Each structure stands twice: as C-alpha cells, then as structure tokens.
Amino acid sequence: MDFSFLTRPDIIQTLFEGLLVTLEVAFFSILFSFIFGIILGTLRYTKLPVLSQIATLYIETIRNLPLLLIIFFGFFGFKEWGWELPITTSVIISMTIFTSSLVGEIVRSGLNSIDKGQIEAARASGLTYVQTLWYIVLPQALKRMIPPMVSQFVSLLKDTSLAVAISLPELMHNAQIVYNRYYNMTVPLLIFVSLIYFVINYSLSQASRQLEKKLAG
C-alpha cells in the first residue's frame, strides 16, 4: 500500500482542516449535550408536574430517532423556516438535540442508582429537595455516570462523520475529496483516517478511566 500521501502538504492540510471541523463540532456538541442532558435527566427524575412529562417526552422521542434523520431535519428544516444557519452550527444543534436525550437518560439512571435512604436522611437533616439533589445525590451520581457518558461522547465524535451526507467539511468529507482525486490512495487514506479516530477516542477513554479512578480514590 502506498502511504506516500503523508508527504504531500496539500493532502495533509486538507485532512487537518477536516479534523479541526470534526473536533469543533464534537467539542461544542459534547458541551451543550452535557448541560442540557443534566437538565433533562434531573427534570425527569424529579417527577415535577408538566416539566417532568415534557422532559420524558423529549428523551423518549428523540433517542428513538436516527441521528442522520435529525441532521437532515436540522439542515433542511432551519432553511425552510427562514433561518440561514452555517452548516457547522446546524450540525452542532442537531447533534446536541440527539445526544442530550441520551445523556438525559444516563443522568436519570445515575440519579436513580443513589440509595433512597441518603435522600431521606438529608431531608430529615433539614435540607430542601433541591439542596439534597445538588449536594448529596448529583455529586455521587456523576461519578457513576462517567463511564456511560464518556462512551456516549466517544460515539458522538465518531458520529460527526454522518454529517458528510450534508457536505459538512469534516474529516471524512475531506478524506473523500482526497481519495476521489487520487483513487489509488483510497485504502491507505482510510487506514490513516481510522488511526486518527482511534487515537482521539482511545485517548478520551483513557482520560475518563483516570478521572474515574481519581474520583473513586
């Protein structure tokens, strides 16, 4: 196999620019999904009238839809509504909508895993329900949420490649441009791109393990 493309500055620059877009979309999608996911999961856990039902409806509806459908809906839907958003912004919103529903379910499961006796003890000591959630339940639950949440965020980073369907200039899109231009480099190029994804996702997984050990210690 010919890996000589690694010495071609124009090809490396094209791939690097795609990687930057992939990381940008992943970073902001993870950030916003984490924030909205915690809000959704907490609202569903609290069983508050109306708000809990809305959160449950959102989570159960969105997480049972294909991500690609949501990406298409976001890209074309915003245009039909007269909102000319940059394609990167459109994808970030779409991925946040989808991933926050999955994170919300992780949060709800994490909160449910905390012993009810701790909640009763906290309430008996004079803490309000919100204080109990904030100071007692959520900190413990977050430690248990780390593995599934990181796994979800790793999936999110990989799923940015689905946006190639709407021509987001991310890593896979730019790799496609290269191997359409140099057809004899297709397999080596795909191996190289696979290696990039592996290094990033493996590093993220290792960092989460270290964080989990630190919190457990």
Rank of each mutant, 00 (worst) to 15 (best):
K214S: 02
G126H: 04
S203Y: 02
A122L: 05
Q140R: 06
G217W: 09
V187D: 07
Q206P: 02
N112I: 14
T22W: 08
I146W: 06
R181L: 13
G82I: 11
D115N: 14
S208V: 00
M95E: 11
R144V: 05
S29P: 01
M95C: 12
L15I: 03
D115C: 08
N184G: 09
I191Q: 13
I12H: 03
K47T: 03
V193A: 14
P147L: 07
Y129M: 15
R108L: 09
F34T: 05
I166N: 08
I11C: 00
M149K: 03
N184D: 14
A55G: 08
K213C: 06
W134M: 04
G82Y: 01
F27N: 08
S155L: 15
V130C: 03
S33E: 00
P188F: 05
S208N: 03
E84F: 13
R108S: 06
E212H: 02
F98W: 07
V21L: 13
K214L: 08
M172H: 01
G104P: 10
I11V: 12
I114Q: 09
I97A: 13
L102Y: 15
S90R: 06
G104S: 12
L20D: 02
L67V: 08
S203V: 10
T132V: 12
F78P: 01
T128A: 02
A121L: 07
S90V: 03
K47W: 05
K143Y: 03
F198L: 15
M145R: 00
H173S: 08
V25Y: 02
F98C: 03
I177N: 14
T7R: 15
Q210S: 06
K213D: 09
R44H: 02
Q140S: 07
E17M: 09
T88V: 15
I106N: 15
S101W: 05
V137M: 11
T88S: 07
P86S: 10
F75H: 12
